[in-house]
Amino acid sequence: MNKFSILIIILILILITGCSSNNFEIKLFTPKSFTPDQSTPIQMKILDREGKPVKGAKVSADLDMQGMSHGDISMKMQETGNGVYVGQAKFEMEGDYTAAIKIDYNGEKWLGEKRFSIVYNKAQ
């Protein structure tokens, strides 16, 4: 293998490593069940790459039910302190959802996904 090929491989590895770094750790907390026509709290804790709480970010999430096309549930998340952000969602159906999370923090924009499941609250 010549020196040029080795240089190309090293550059590709550096690019792959840089692109795969994750700027934030998101911990999503959702209730196991919901009550129709009532708001359900969705909470997330956002940490930076050093594990410190992210404070003062603009955070939003779009919830989409997997395999269905009845529209997204959009939420602007409100900061409650210590890197915790909370939003309210009104679910119509139980099932598997994907939360597309957008974070804008100190000019840095990030988009990621988390998945969760929720069922109808049968205690009503």
Rank of each mutant, 00 (worst) to 15 (best):
G107F: 00
I42Q: 01
L28C: 08
V54D: 05
M44L: 15
F34D: 00
Q78H: 10
D37F: 00
K102Y: 09
I101F: 08
Q66C: 05
K52P: 05
E108R: 11
I12L: 15
D64K: 00
L63S: 00
A100Y: 10
L63P: 12
V59M: 07
T80M: 09
K52A: 13
E94N: 05
S39E: 04
I46P: 10
I12P: 12
Y85F: 04
T30W: 04
V54L: 04
Y105G: 06
T80Y: 08
I14G: 15
P31V: 02
K76P: 01
I103R: 10
I73Y: 07
T17D: 11
K76F: 02
G83Y: 11
T80D: 07
Q88G: 06
K3E: 15
L111E: 12
N82S: 06
D96A: 14
T35G: 01
M93S: 07
R49G: 09
G112S: 13
Q66K: 12
A57S: 14
V86D: 03
R115E: 10
S21P: 07
M65V: 01
P41K: 13
I46Q: 07
I9D: 14
D72Y: 06
T30A: 05
M65I: 07
D37T: 01
K45E: 10
V86K: 07
G83T: 03
Y105D: 13
K114C: 02
N22F: 13
G112L: 02
R115A: 14
K109A: 12
D62E: 14
K52W: 09
M68C: 04
G112D: 14
D62Q: 13
K76Q: 09
L63M: 07
A100E: 03
K76I: 01
L47R: 02
T98F: 11
A57W: 13
F24K: 04
T40F: 01
I26N: 08
I10S: 14
Q43K: 14
I42N: 02
